[in-house]
C-alpha cells in the first residue's frame, strides 16, 4: 500500500482553513461543534479534534474553554514591500492604534548598542520607549534609538503622540528609505511580561532593524518585542 501523504486530520484542517480564507467562516465566528463537524466530514470526533488542534496551534483558530473554537482575529500585517508605520498597519485592518511613551532620554551607547549599530561606544543617541496598543490590547514594547547628531534638539514632544518618521521628515528633513531587519523569537522578560500582560517567558517576536536615510546614513536602530498571536510579516514581490 502507498504511504499516506495527508492524514485525515490534516485534510480536514486544510478544508476548514479554506473555508476561513473563503470567508465562509468569518473572523470571530464560532465553529460548529466537534460532533457536527465529525458528521459533516464522516469521521470520528477524535479526528476532528486533532484537525482543530492543528489550526489552534497554527493560530488560525482560538479555543475558549467550554465554548469551543472560534476563527482567530485578523493579524496585523507588516508589509515589508510597503513598509508602513506600525500605526498605519494597525489602522489598515480597522483597529485603533495607541502608543504610550514610557521613556525618553539621551544616552551614550554601551557595548550592546555599539555592537548592533557598529557605531563606537559612547555615541550619543535618543532612546525612546513606547508601549503600543491595538484596540486597547497591549501589543508591543517598542524601543527606538535615534542617532543624536542627525536630530539635534529632538524633544519629547516631537515623539509623543506623533509618528517618528513625520517628525524626522518635517523637523529634520530626513527621509528614511530602507531598513535591514531581523526577526527572532525571544521569551518575555519580567518587564515585558508586565507591560504586555503575558506570562513571564511567554514567547514573543523580537523585531530589530537598522534604518537608513536617502544619504545612506544610519538614523535609527529599533528593537521591538511583539506578541506572537496578533501579527504577521509579509513580503510579496508580485501582484
Amino acid at each position: 500500500m502507498r504511504r499516506r501523504i495527508l492524514f485525515k486530520d490534516e485534510e480536514i484542517s486544510r478544508e476548514l482553513e479554506r473555508r476561513i480564507i473563503d470567508q465562509r467562516l468569518k473572523e470571530g465566528a464560532r465553529l460548529p461543534s466537534e460532533r457536527a463537524l465529525a458528521e459533516d466530514f464522516g469521521v470520528q470526533r477524535d479526528t476532528v479534534r486533532c484537525a482543530l488542534e492543528i489550526l489552534v496551534k497554527k493560530g488560525v483558530l482560538v479555543k475558549r474553554t467550554r465554548q469551543g473554537c472560534f476563527v482567530a482575529p485578523k493579524r496585523i500585517e507588516f508589509d515589508l514591500n510597503n513598509f508602513r508605520s506600525v500605526k498605519k498597519s494597525i489602522e489598515n485592518i480597522g483597529r485603533e492604534s495607541k502608543a504610550v511613551l514610557l521613556n525618553f532620554e539621551i544616552l551614550s551607547m554601551g557595548e550592546k548598542l555599539s555592537e548592533k549599530t557598529l557605531l563606537p561606544e559612547g555615541t550619543l543617541c535618543y532612546s525612546i520607549m513606547r508601549l503600543r496598543y491595538e484596540n486597547d490590547r497591549a501589543m508591543s514594547v517598542e524601543r527606538s534609538y535615534i542617532i543624536a547628531e542627525h536630530v539635534p534638539g529632538l524633544t519629547q514632544q516631537d515623539v509623543d503622540q506623533k509618528s517618528l518618521s513625520s517628525t524626522l521628515r518635517q523637523k529634520f528633513r530626513i527621509s528614511l528609505v530602507s531598513s535591514h531587519q531581523r526577526l527572532t523569537q525571544v521569551y518575555a522578560t519580567d518587564m515585558e511580561a508586565e507591560l504586555l500582560k503575558v506570562k513571564k517567558d511567554e514567547p514573543l517576536i523580537r523585531y530589530e532593524g537598522l534604518v537608513y536615510d536617502r544619504k545612506g546614513r544610519l538614523i535609527e536602530f529599533f528593537d521591538n518585542v511583539l506578541k506572537t498571536d496578533s501579527i504577521e510579516f509579509r513580503i510579496k514581490d508580485f501582484a
Binding site: G59, L183, F233, R234, F238
Partner: peptide, 30 residues
C-alpha cells in the same frame, strides 16, 4: 522566481513537535 511570503510565530502541534524533537506547544516560526 518571485514569492509571496508570510511569516508568523506559532506553536508546535504534536506532529511537527515530534519531527523537530521539541515539546508540543513550543514556539516555532511558521
Amino acid at each position: 522566481e518571485k514569492f509571496d511570503q508570510v511569516l508568523r510565530v506559532t506553536r508546535l502541534s504534536p506532529k511537527e513537535a515530534r519531527y523537530l524533537e521539541l515539546p508540543v506547544d513550543d514556539p516555532s516560526f511558521y
